[in-house]
Design a protein around this nucleic acid. Structure first.
Lengths: 180, 180
DNA sequence: GAAACCATGTAAGTTGTTACATGATTGG
DNA sequence: CCAATCATGTAACAACTTACATGGTTTC
């Protein structure tokens, strides 16, 4: 699913400027997709050319005009058409996982830090998402996906804590401890 | 982590040809990273130029020579150097998840099929991985990552089954059923 | 006064995929 | 006989990111 389609999707939730679409990417798709201005602005220009969105310029004080985009009927159709295509396979590009695959090549201390940080990061994300889940007004789809992200990160953190001994067991024994 | 680095990583596990590296990608990194010949062969050529790997050509009957690559000491250093860098953030590019975020735009039937397929796919993958986990000889790192993949896909399938009502609740009621 | 936010856009560069080019062997 | 496996490589293309270009406003 390319940036063009994702922009269209965000616009089904309401009108927005390019800047706001970038924020929406961070809010809704964070940890899934992300997009830079360098891909969003050209995509919006193309969508406008193609009649998938309309653009209204709102003059602002001492700032570039704010261009507010709104999805058209054709845009909505194109988006639904895209959604109906069988989704491609998931691809988790995780340098963390790639690193752990070669855990035996890493200094024990470095590995432990890596795992600690990751667990902390997961817990933090879960806490933040739970808060959003509780207060936010979300579409059922958004709620489902948010819950999915929570479940994934929660089980990720748990997995790491319960299984880190598999890779840390290789540690040089600490001077005064003699654990299994 | 680019293909070059990942090739180097695979070569820390033993010598291999470009063709075999592609297979290793499918075996070890499946669902994480994947790579095509169009990126593997140029990467190996570059690694050879840079002295990170050596290449031995083994003539074969009626086939192109098989080029077997072996990592050098410099290669090993470069790889470890790469592993020591703080890993970038995970990025799960999932068209499935992106689609579900807009579940309300999809026909109920289509949505149900999508969820069924996904659950089935997860369960299948988990079963296959459990088999590999049981019999394969794996490094601790590989075992850890395999377990991680199993945990993820298992909790993914469970999450979908336990929460699909959130997005399917919107279904037009089927003619003769009146389940909650 | 530095950083972050608001606001848009272009150009160059990176990184990868797909399709092309070649061609024997094995199994259903 | 068609598909998959074995085996390597190049060229064209796609999609995205980073850095550049511009510049006021708000917050620490």
């Amino acid at each position: 699913m390319d940036i063009r389609t994702l922009c269209l999707g965000i616009l089904t939730l309401g009108e927005a400027s390019g800047y706001e679409i970038k924020q929406a990417f961070e809010e809704h798709f964070s940890r899934f997709y992300e997009a830079s201005f360098g891909s969003i602005y050209p995509a919006l220009a193309k969508l406008t050319d193609d009649g998938m969105v309309t653009c209204t310029e709102q003059p602002q004080d001492r700032r570039p005009d704010k261009k507010v985009y709104r999805i058209t009927a054709s845009g909505r159709l194109e988006f639904i058409d895209e959604l109906m295509k069988p989704p491609g396979r998931d691809r988790l590009r995780s340098e963390f996982i790639a690193t752990l695959m070669f855990a035996d090549l890493l200094p024990t201390r470095h590995l432990a830090d890596l795992l600690d940080e990751r667990v902390h990061d997961c817990r933090e994300a879960v806490a933040e998402w739970r808060a959003r889940e509780a207060k936010g007004r979300l579409t059922p789809g958004q709620r489902f996906v948010l819950g999915y992200a929570i479940a994934m990160h929660d089980s990720m953190a748990r997995y790491i804590e319960e299984n880190r001994h598999l890779i840390e067991g290789h540690a040089l024994l600490a001077p005064s401890s003699s654990g299994a």
